[in-house]
Each structure stands twice: as structure tokens, then as C-alpha cells.
């Protein structure tokens, strides 16, 4: 049985069926991501004045890697340009050109996910440490030359570690939102290339030790939820686009118009995924 309207538009909608289908799907996706954006903004505006962890209910402003996030934004914008070029190449009946553009698009998707994985790993090995004298620091520590992931105070105690050599963060300039001046000593430290202070902390003096994971702060909960959900969409899109590039090319020989329409539908999904990031990046990284 032939599926109707895969190439020619239906008279009532003026569109071929797959295009109607993808737009209905994207409408449901807008509602999904819209709910998370609303949740993020509510958490952000109801947070107390001041920076976490100095203020317990404050917001952990500037803890994300903005240069890396900016680079990832450029990667996704480039991939949207190449997916359109790939579609245009099919309209020009140029399959080798289509394949080259698609390869670049899939490479961008994998690059984005690779960079995101690096960012996640950096967060899972980043700790907030509260000591019994009420002080709190953030930073990394090494055990046997490795940065441990997801450790808690119980993990440290179970390994009979008595002292931790912690690379305590000197707040970077991104921790100070627009309109707020960076204190002179912090400014000077970074100008001298000093981004951490090394400090030895006795384990017996540690009150709590938590990695930057969802349960540590609502910011991390919503950040990981939104970016992981977005990452799943990037992975899904990359798999579909890779399928059209490597495995599903038989359709191009049998029915080039239908194949071109499928690429358009894949391109629409890809643009949506990239558009979500365009909103996600400034909201999560800069605000």
C-alpha cells in the first residue's frame, strides 16, 4: 500500500503529510521546553540576592563555562546552515554535495555532544565544601592523580583520607553580572594568571562535601534536566541525519522527491533543536 501525499501536497492543507506531521510534533516540543524555561525563570527570579554558595539560597551565577558554551552555539548555528545547504544540493540534483554538507552537520552534532560531555564531567568533579567553622569554598581536588566524580563526604571518609588538597576557585569575572564591579584583588589574581588558591583542608573539619550534581542546588537540577533533554534531541537528530546520509540513500535513487522532502523534515527538526539552544544559552549561561 502506498502512503499518500509523501511528495505532492494535499489540497486541503497545501502541504505534504510529513511536513504537517513534523510541525504538529514540534508544537508539542515547544510546550515541553516551554514548561522547563518557565520553571527556570521562576527559580531564577525567586532566588535570594547574592551568590551561591556564599548565600545558601542564592544563585550560582557564572559557574558555567561561557567560552565553551559560546563555541558550542557557533557549532550548532554552523550545522543549521549546512543542513539547509544539503537540502538545496538535493534540489540541484547534486548528491555528492548533499553528502558532504550532511557529513559536516553530523560532525557538528557529535562535536557539540563531545563538548557537552566534557562540560558535564567538569561539573561532576567540581565540589562545594562546607567546613565546621561555617566557611564554604568551591573547587576541585585530586586523589591519586585523578579528579574523582560524584564523591560525598562519606566516600572521602570510607577511603580513610585525612586531608584534601583543594584547588579553591577564585571567582571568575563572569560571577559578577553586568552592573557589578569585580573586586580589585580578584581582578589582579586573574590578571596574574592565578585562577585557584591551593588549600589543605582536614577531612575532620568538613561538614559537607557535594559535587555539582542536580541534588546540590535547584540551578544544577534545572540546568542538567534542560541541557540533557536538549542533548537527547541533538543525539536523536544526529542519528536520523546520519541514517539519511549513510543507510537510507536507496530512496534517493527510487524517489528523489520523497527523499528531498524527508531531508526537509529532518532539517526542520534540526533547526528546532538549534533554536532551543539559541534560547537556552543566554538564559542558562548569561542571566
Amino acid at each position: 500500500m502506498d502512503i499518500p501525499y509523501t511528495v505532492n501536497p494535499r489540497s486541503d492543507t497545501g502541504l505534504y503529510n510529513a511536513k504537517v506531521g513534523i510541525w504538529l510534533f514540534l508544537a508539542s516540543e515547544v510546550m515541553l521546553f516551554g514548561a522547563f524555561f518557565s520553571a527556570y525563570i521562576l527559580l531564577r527570579v525567586t532566588a535570594q540576592q547574592g551568590f551561591w554558595p556564599d548565600v545558601a539560597d542564592g544563585w550560582p551565577h557564572g559557574l558555567l563555562n561561557i567560552p565553551i558554551g559560546t563555541f558550542n552555539t557557533a557549532v550548532l548555528i554552523s550545522s543549521s546552515v549546512t543542513v539547509v545547504m544539503a537540502w538545496m544540493a538535493l534540489k540541484e540534483n547534486n548528491f555528492p554535495k548533499f553528502r558532504n554538507f550532511m557529513l559536516f552537520t553530523v560532525a557538528c552534532a557529535l562535536g557539540f555532544l563531545g563538548i557537552k560531555t566534557f562540560e558535564y564531567k567538569e561539573k561532576f568533579s567540581h565540589y562545594v565544601i562546607r567546613t565546621t567553622d561555617g566557611k564554604v569554598v568551591t573547587g576541585h581536588f585530586d586523589v591519586d592523580g585523578k579528579s574523582p566524580l560524584f564523591w560525598t563526604l562519606d566516600t572521602v571518609k570510607s577511603k580513610n583520607i585525612e586531608k584534601l588538597k583543594v584547588e579553591v576557585d577564585i571567582p571568575n569575572r563572569y560571577r559578577f553580572p553586568v552592573g557589578m564591579q569585580v573586586p580589585e584583588d580578584i581582578h589582579k589574581a586573574h590578571a596574574e594568571g592565578r585562577h585557584h588558591d591551593e588549600r589543605v583542608i582536614e577531612v575532620s573539619q568538613i561538614d559537607s562535601l557535594k559535587a555539582f550534581i542536580p541534588s546540590t542546588h535547584p540551578f544544577f537540577a534545572i540546568y542538567f534536566t534542560m541541557t540533557f533533554l536538549h542533548g537527547l534531541h541533538v543525539l536523536g537528530g544526529a542519528i536520523v541525519l546520519a541514517y539519511f546520509t549513510f543507510i537510507g540513500t536507496d530512496l534517493w535513487r527510487k524517489n528523489p522527491e520523497q527523499f528531498t522532502n524527508r531531508i526537509e523534515v529532518g532539517g526542520l527538526f534540526w533547526h528546532f533543536v538549534d533554536l532551543v539552544w539559541i534560547f537556552l544559552f543566554p538564559v542558562v549561561y548569561l542571566l
Binding site: 548555528i77 526537509e264 526542520l268 528546532f272 538549534d274 533554536l275
Partner: peptide, 18 residues
């Protein structure tokens, strides 16, 4: 809305982001 139209929207939003 075709991929062409969505791409124009995307480029416009990207310009605003920049």
C-alpha cells in the same frame, strides 16, 4: 512553513542572540 522560512527565522534569532 518550509525549511527556507524556518531558516530565515533561525538566522534572525541568531542575529538577535549575537
Amino acid at each position: 512553513m518550509s525549511l527556507k522560512t524556518f531558516h530565515i527565522v533561525f538566522v534572525t534569532v541568531s542575529v538577535l542572540l549575537m
